[in-house]
Amino acid sequence: MAILEVNNLKAYYVTHTFGRSSTVRAVDGVSFQVNKNEIYGIAGESGCGKSTLLKAISGLVKPPLQILDGEVGYNFDDERLDILSLRDDRKRRKLRGARISLIPQGSMSVLNPVRRVRKAFEDVIYAHLDVSEKEFEELVSRHLLALGLDWTVMHTYPHQLSGGMRQRITIALSTILRPDIIFADEPTTALDVVVQRGVVQLIKKIKEEQQNTLIMVTHDMSIHANLCDRLAVMYAGEIVEEGDVQSIFSAPKHPYTTMLLDSLPKVGDSSARVSAPGAPPSLVDPPEGCRFHPRCPHVMERCRVESPVLNGLGNGHRVACFLQEGGK
């Protein structure tokens, strides 16, 4: 059963400066479902709207971000909720933290630089649980230990910690209440590969123990390969391909996915590599037709004027590309 259903979601940044308004179409008509207990990955280029998508579906919508259209439904065991229609801010906050939790990108921004780490844990726990100080300490130290962190971090200020430590602390913070759904925005980006491997190991362990659903955003395709069941690839505000992780890696259908998979060198390979052509488009004024067409090696006439929709190819693989419609 789908625990999360996102339907035609449009989330734009609308700003007004000097009487001119500008609209960034960061999430532009995105639909997907996530099944209970699965690890669902979201990949894609810098600035394509991944973080915005997570903000929108976790209900962290404040100006200039606006929801223009769409639904975000959660099917919990005991209730069904459309988070975007929850008018009450308190209810949304309650939902976040306890049932859904977001590990934001750039972990420093959640840890307040002038407060000790302990305060952050107190905030989260006392807002949702009625526990004594002793219970608080037990709960936290047990959880920290499982993440390879020690109680002394509770007394430190964020600036005293390395990037990797801060990241593990944010993961600790966002999983301590055993949420049903965890959204993780680039949780391994700041870490060395050994610690990355430890974090992936840890996320898997937390997931097994707590039986929750994980939505994992990162541009690091190797992490997706290691962790996810299914994967969505975003480009310029849209999902261009989705499928189970095996078939995306072994037989990518969208030219952008292919480019993502082909562009990185490997250790042991220093042969000169050209960079992929072009840069991602502006979301203020995205290209007509297929948004990838200016960089696409297979571009056809049609791609410049019509935008392809995400079509099923069977076995749960979906792709938005005219090449798949026999247009070759």
Binding site: G148, D150, G198, S222, A225
Partner: peptide
Amino acid sequence: QLLKTSVPAPDPRDRWTEDIALSDLETK
């Protein structure tokens, strides 16, 4: 050596399988 073997492969058939020892406390 551990660092090199921990570089993730961009291939779902080649996942990390063995668990590694998480580091001791940083300060320790």
